[in-house]
């Protein structure tokens, strides 16, 4: 019984993952773009740090590269869902006997993970040919790396849930362009993609670290750079788990409400 109910979601994951491997051109384009941005930013920070204390430079460069490497994770990835919302054909998928919210989350997770892995390999290879001063550093220790992996999986799950919340809002407003543009910008800034969150003033940082977008990449990257003690690590994981729970519950509620209104209005 249990096995039967989970199968459609596994299949959704598998199919979307396979589809993602077909987008090799997009992946190559992404790698070139992200590599260029990473390089420019790395040199920008080299120049910025050259003015004063160079202590944090290595960390910042590493932060930049990890952000670029996992950029795919942040992108609102399932254009299929956007299309279905805008054209209204989402109503048809309601006929399928699956949990809509979970179904689309599985697809999103597949796209994020496979897309990120596809881009990661060439980005890591690139590190070997870069000049030393703009190369990213290895994780501080095996423990730091393990913490990073654990936190990253939670982070990716958080982003998938953020996507469902934003798509729920798109369902309501039906204006995807202005809104999703703003959301993705907000995401880039607050996730630390445009500038590392570690560079914000200390006072703001306390707040920035615990907002939902920071759970995606900022939290794992901090662990990659410095293995955290039990207390700090627990707080960090707790924050991620808490956001994951809140976003999931909120997303599900919004979806349920919207899907019900579709069935009531008849599309």
């Amino acid at each position: 019984m249990k096995k039967q109910t989970i199968r459609p979601y596994l299949t959704a994951f598998r199919i979307r993952a396979l589809l993602e491997t077909q987008y090799r051109g997009a992946a190559l384009g992404g790698v070139i773009t992200q590599a260029f941005f990473g390089l420019v930013l790395a040199y920008l920070y080299t120049a910025l740090y050259a003015g004063g204390d160079p202590a944090g430079l290595r960390d910042t460069v590493t932060y930049v590269w990890l952000q670029q490497m996992f950029f795919r994770v942040l992108m609102t990835s399932d254009s299929e869902l956007q299309n279905q919302i805008m054209t209204g054909s989402l109503a048809y998928t309601l006929c399928r006997p699956v949990d809509q919210h979970a179904y689309w989350v599985c697809r999103d997770l597949a796209a994020q993970w496979v897309g990120a892995l596809m881009r990661m390999v060439p980005m890591i290879a690139l590190q070997f040919i870069l000049p030393l001063e703009v190369r990213m550093a290895l994780p501080e220790s095996p423990a730091a790396f393990l913490q990073f992996l654990l936190s990253l999986s939670l982070g990716v799950a958080c982003v998938a849930q953020i996507h469902t919340v934003t798509s729920a809002i798109t369902m309501k407003t039906l204006d995807s362009r202005g809104f999703s543009g703003m959301i993705s910008l907000l995401m880039m800034i607050l996730a630390g993609n445009i500038i590392p969150l570690t560079l914000f003033p200390e006072t703001v940082q306390a707040l920035l670290r615990y907002q939902p977008f920071a759970q995606a990449l900022d939290a794992p990257i901090r662990m990659y750079q410095h293995a955290q003690g039990t207390a700090e690590f627990s707080i960090s994981l707790a924050a991620q788990l808490a956001w994951l729970a809140v976003l999931t519950a909120g997303g599900r509620a919004l979806w349920r409400q919207h899907l019900r209104s579709i069935t009531v209005q008849g599309g």
Partner: peptide, 9 residues
């Protein structure tokens, strides 16, 4: 933010 942190380039 960058200029606030680094005071110049």
């Amino acid at each position: 933010v960058l200029m606030n942190r680094f005071r110049g380039l």
